[in-house]
Amino acid sequence: MPHPGPRLTVIDTDPGIDDAIGILLALASRDFEIAGITTVAGNIGIETTTRNAGRLLAFAGREDIPVLQGASAPLSRPGPEPLNLHGRDGIGGVALPHPTQKPGSQDAVEWMEELLLAQPAGAVDVFALGPLTNIARLILEKPDAAKRIGRIIAMGGAVHEHGNVGPRSEFNLWADPEAASAVVASGLPLVLIPLDVTRRVRATREFIAALGASGKPLAAMVGSLIDSYFESAANRESRPLHDPCVMLYALAPELFRIETLRLSVDTGSVEGAGALTIDELGSPVDVALGVDGAAVLDLLARRLTQER
């Protein structure tokens, strides 16, 4: 069967160590044609997330891909404090070159609108790796463009798992619950990759060593990023590789177990903000609730070490 060709894709992101891993995986995969990277505040502030996107593209030699700066704060509430686990620079202190190109002059949402209106309906996918502020703004402010999205694959939420910023809340949805609610309720094709799956995808030090020994610069860099994502030298496994699961799902959906659930997003108190509830009055969303962790890690390694 002939290869159908790469999917035109926008990566909306707040790099972030695991975001960086996902971005490098996407750049290494011939299945995706990256139209641009749009940035959002989340793991760290907007100036740093935007700079980190440019640094990753400079490292990969892909300065042809534009970076567009997006939302610096949530839709209607104060932004979260930066996450300490990503370090002061957002990417664990891993050495990357300075950006060689300035971010585009357009706002991220305006740029996405132009891209979507210029392409056939359904031709552009969005990989959402951070708070959903930019995507929600597109839906609320540019509905004619938003409805042309092929699908959104978003890392976020916790269904049956305990949250990571509250009893039931995961960081990306908690950081801007109003935006998450707008995206979930939009009716757009949405696949949600929650903590129920991402916590099953963790790398070992042997995995890192194999990436470093491959001779492939992208693989070695991902190894360095994962190495910075261990809680301590004594840990045998890394923290969960949350955001790369978006790209891994797009590459091999058969490795994930998907259920369609009707969901609503809590937009109330700080403690419960962003929590997902299975609700018969909620919106139908395809949710990943299972994963073959070993197989997706093998896929990650193969894609990073193959010839592009």
Score class of each variant (00 low, 15 high):
G166L: 10
S214P: 15
G272Q: 11
I258P: 07
A203P: 11
G290L: 08
V287L: 05
S264F: 10
S169T: 12
L218G: 10
D279A: 09
E271L: 01
E280W: 09
D227V: 00
F256T: 10
M247R: 08
S181Q: 11
Y229Q: 06
D266L: 03
G282I: 08
C245I: 07
S224V: 02
A275K: 05
R262L: 08
V183S: 07
R239Y: 07
A213H: 03
P167M: 06
S181F: 03
T260P: 03
C245V: 07
E280R: 08
V191F: 13
G215S: 15
L225H: 00
V222E: 15
G166F: 13
L192A: 02
R202V: 12
L195Q: 13
L251W: 13
F230G: 01
P217L: 15
R302L: 09
V184Y: 02
P167L: 04
I226P: 04
R205A: 03
G212D: 09
S228H: 06
S238M: 01
E231G: 14
L276G: 00
G212F: 07
S269Q: 02
H162I: 15
Y249P: 15
V159L: 01
G166P: 03
A210E: 07
S269L: 09
D196L: 12
S224A: 00
T267N: 04
G212S: 07
D279N: 11
A295I: 11
P240T: 11
A288H: 12
I226H: 01
V265G: 12
G268E: 07
L251R: 14
L173F: 09
G272N: 07
A182T: 14
I226N: 01
F207Q: 01
N164E: 13
V291N: 06
S214N: 14
I278L: 03
C245T: 13
A213G: 04
V270E: 11
I193E: 11
M221G: 05
A233G: 04
L297F: 11
V291D: 14
E178R: 00
